[in-house]
Computed example of a mutant assay.
Amino acid sequence: MDFSAYSSAFSGLLVVLTTLIVQFIVANTGKARLPNHIPGKIDPSLGHESFVFRAYRTMENSLENISLFLGSAFLAILAGVNPVWTGFAVWIYALARIMHMILYYMISTEQNPSPRSYFYLLGLLANILLLILILTRLL
């Protein structure tokens, strides 16, 4: 199978993985600067007013979502789903996750839905699109 047609999807996946690395660095650097920090734990008294909490939750949210997305993306590629649509869905997900991250870093709110929620939903819809494309291809 010639995977060169999926270069757009692969570059979008690289952006997704790079975004996750950035989130990991920001979250752990911020947490390490707190007094009496314990590796692997976040102070339960922290809330949305704390950038450290928001950075940590951004990373955790990405970790909660990335396995399903990566599975969908690679299954789409291996199943031979249209490369243009696969790339489109991957890039929508990648950009939605970046916007989710930026808004979570910038806006301290417990309001629901918050502005970041719309980008979370957009990423979820991109993943659902991939799953529909896979199903269509396999049928």
Rank of each mutant, 00 (worst) to 15 (best):
A73M: 15
S62W: 01
M59A: 03
V81C: 12
A89V: 06
T58C: 05
R57A: 01
I66G: 05
E60F: 03
E64K: 08
F69H: 12
I66S: 06
S67H: 11
L70E: 12
F88S: 05
I77T: 01
L78Y: 14
A89E: 01
N82T: 03
E64A: 13
S67M: 11
A79E: 10
A73K: 09
A79H: 02
S72D: 04
I92K: 01
W85P: 00
S62D: 07
S67N: 08
R57W: 00
L75R: 01
P83L: 07
E64C: 01
N65H: 11
W85N: 09
V81I: 10
V81G: 10
T58N: 14
L75P: 10
F74M: 15
W85D: 00
T86I: 02
S67K: 07
V90S: 11
L70D: 06
P83M: 05
E64L: 12
L70V: 13
L70W: 10
F74D: 13
E64M: 08
T86N: 02
F74H: 13
W91S: 03
L75I: 14
N61E: 11
L75T: 15
T58R: 00
I77L: 02
S67I: 14
A89T: 04
N82W: 02
I77D: 11
N82Q: 12
R57L: 01
G80K: 06
P83A: 06
T58A: 13
L78W: 15
G71R: 12
V90W: 05
G87A: 08
E60T: 06
N61L: 07
A89H: 04
S67C: 07
S62A: 15
W91D: 04
G71P: 14
I66D: 05
A89K: 02
L63Q: 11
L68N: 10
S62H: 07
F74Y: 15
T58M: 04
N61I: 08
N82H: 07
V90H: 09
L78N: 11
R57C: 04
T86P: 00
N61S: 15
G71F: 11
E64P: 03
S72T: 13
F69Y: 12
E60V: 10
S67E: 10
L70F: 12
L75K: 10
V90A: 10
G80A: 02
